[in-house]
Design a protein around this nucleic acid. Structure first.
Lengths: 191, 191
DNA sequence: CGTCTATTTGAATGTACTCAAAAGCGGTGG
DNA sequence: CCACCGCTTTTGAGTACATTCAAATAGACG
């Protein structure tokens, strides 16, 4: 169990003393997942949130008609879960699957609540994370509403070069909300 | 300055003692805005977050081409600001305008940070708010990606009956990411 | 090497947009 | 109180964007 990367990430936002770091570390469980393996499946209960030490994950929703919509990708230093179902203790609406082999730190809802109570500065760290996550979603919403598919594709490439290099076009299309065929056509346009 | 509604809202999530309530109240400034008046304009600096005591507001982005995209509506008991620009102290990307006459409580970023430091339980309240806001955006994203305009329209009507009753179709269309003409066509369909 | 999936290409279709014009509705001033 | 003005909503025709389906090609993995 190596919380080094997480502690470094936390340090960018708040200071934890040594006992706090140890308490946090004791709440974490290491989890390795292989490429294509699922960390969470739709309809399952979503009791954990994951910090990515290495690798790449994709969160996606499957509609009743089978349409695949990518909610987010998560790489090194990102937290990922089905937040809605995690906080409300409801069955998951999204699948989380490894795109590459991953090393994760897993934190259960019960442990998280305990850590919040015992380490107010960790709750601050999380408040900041949630502000950023909310802001990011809002920004994505603005862009989805006001830009064409082509513009959204270029924005995605610029914003997440490391991610776009490791996921398939099908997965990017699913993130942009278009079909793989149409993404292919967009890419074929000169410039 | 009447923080009654806000204190009641906070009480649903955390307990504040009397001195904490008073400290919070002393950080708030009452603000009345008339129908059509702007609380925030794009490019301005976004230094405040607003709690809605009464009335109805709309946050929207105007693209360089003049396309109007509604980010959110806020009614009684909602907080509203351009969160991305508020937390990062950047010029606003969204406009916030009163749809109806409003009574607001305004809280500056500096005061908010001070309140976070002095009242950890208020920071918890905010952490919960941000989790909910993030979850809600994520849910909206799933629906925007996987549902047709007609389905999104029906979802909106069911989810926010009080809002849909008070905003124009043009504003709903802008929230759904479609043109007013197309929304009109959707409504005209039987069933 | 063979199989499975991703990507490309193309034709036909459907969904949503633009533009223009008419009809409806609400607020304001005479 | 009514008439007018401005904005919203509706309607329709023509167009553009994006999807579906099918088939061919290319890549990745065991």
């Amino acid at each position: 169990m190596d919380p080094t990367l997480l502690l470094a990430h936390i340090r960018k936002h708040v200071k934890l003393d040594l006992p706090e770091q140890q308490l946090l570390a004791s709440s974490l469980v290491e989890k390795s997942v292989k490429r294509k393996e699922f960390v969470l499946k739709q309809e399952e209960s979503c009791k954990h949130i994951y910090f990515v030490n290495s690798g790449l994950l994709r969160a996606f929703h499957l509609s009743p008609q089978g349409k695949d919509s990518t909610i987010m990708f998560a790489t090194k230093e990102w937290w990922i879960t089905d937040m809605y179902c995690f906080v409300n203790r409801l069955p998951a609406m999204v699948n989380i699957q490894a795109v590459q082999d991953c090393e994760l730190l897993s934190l259960s809802k019960d442990h998280l609540d305990k850590v919040f109570s015992e380490i107010p500065r960790f709750e601050r760290y999380f408040r900041i994370l949630m502000e950023n996550a909310y802001s990011r979603e809002q920004l994505r919403m603005i862009q989805n509403l006001s830009n064409t598919a082509k513009e959204r594709y270029n924005t995605f490439l610029n914003k997440y070069p490391d991610i776009s290099a490791h996921v398939t076009q099908k997965q990017i299309a699913s993130y942009l909300g278009i079909t793989p065929e149409f993404l292919s056509a967009i890419r074929a346009e000169k410039d």
